[in-house]
């Protein structure tokens, strides 16, 4: 790499990581100040783990993300299998367009549109408040499923389509052929899709904000209401924890990925010999 490239990269990564560094450092600040570091202290972390609202928001977020991931992964995988086999051209292009909509539409449009429908339907049934955990779950499944489909579909297209046919010729039912032949082939795509769905759901603020009921607060919504009022380094402590958790997840998935590609290379080598 040329020196100018190195300098430019350093500037860009400095820009990307400066705010994160600030968060990390000031989460350990003894004083409440966000510009002067007066001494090392863990008191904001201590305050954080005793903040029952934040802890409840954290568990809400995890429950919601796990449920949304389970539903969208199963529905998305079956949908990808179906889309892959579609022979009707117009049906296929309709499905592709519909899958694109939640990914390309701004979050605020997705959020508002679902909220309007929930409020309308709620009013029809005379409910006093129509937004709750259920509406949020529907919203999360809606924006997560396209990402699962997008991960699974290429794996299906790469797979030799004569494999499930051979299984069926040998006496498998279509379901049996799917479970025994197709599923193991597309599993990496399903896992990546599920991870994406989980992280998208964890991270989502805008859509959750519009579809959340008053009784159910997720972590991003909690952060939003915390940052509306005065600043507290407690927020920084929370951000630091989130940062290290996601960083370790990212490193783990990278290691798994590297192992996978190493295995693949060894396999290719042995096939060549």
């Amino acid at each position: 790499m040329k020196l100018s490239s190195k300098i430019y990269s350093a500037v860009i990564f400095g820009f990307l990581f400066a705010p994160i560094a600030v968060l990390l450092v000031f989460s350990f600040n003894e004083a409440k100040s966000l510009s002067v570091f007066s001494g090392f202290s863990l008191k904001w972390y201590d305050e954080l783990i005793h903040d029952s609202n934040t802890l409840e928001a954290l568990s809400n977020t995890l429950i919601l993300a796990a449920s949304a991931t389970a539903i969208s992964t199963i529905m998305g995988t079956f949908a990808a299998v179906g889309i892959n086999k579609l022979r009707t051209k117009w049906y296929r292009s309709v499905m592709n367009t519909v899958t694109d909509i939640p990914m390309t539409n701004p979050d605020i449009i997705t959020g508002i549109s679902l909220m309007l429908m929930f409020v309308f339907v709620g009013r029809l049934f005379g409910a006093s408040s129509s937004l709750n955990f259920g509406t949020m779950l529907i919203a999360h499944v809606t924006f997560c499923t396209p990402y699962v489909i997008l991960q699974v579909l290429p794996k299906l297209q790469q797979m030799d389509s004569s494999l499930p046919e051979a299984a069926m010729d040998l006496g498998c039912t279509p379901m049996g052929a799917f479970l025994k032949v197709e599923l193991p082939e597309i599993l990496p795509g399903i896992i990546t899709g599920a991870i994406m769905a989980f992280t998208l759901s964890l991270d989502d603020f805008v859509i959750s904000y519009f579809t959340a009921g008053t009784g159910f607060e997720t972590l991003p919504i909690r952060i939003y209401s915390m940052t509306k009022k005065t600043v507290s380094p407690k927020m920084y402590a929370l951000a630091t924890i989130i940062f290290f958790v996601t960083l370790s997840l990212l490193l783990i998935s990278n290691v798994v990925d590297n192992k996978d590609s190493r295995k693949l290379r060894e396999l290719q080598k042995s096939q060549k010999q």
Binding site: L16, I223, I242
Partner: peptide, 11 residues
């Protein structure tokens, strides 16, 4: 490049 994307945009 991706690490900052993993932090919530509010933060």
């Amino acid at each position: 490049i991706m690490i900052p994307m993993w932090m919530n945009f509010l933060i």
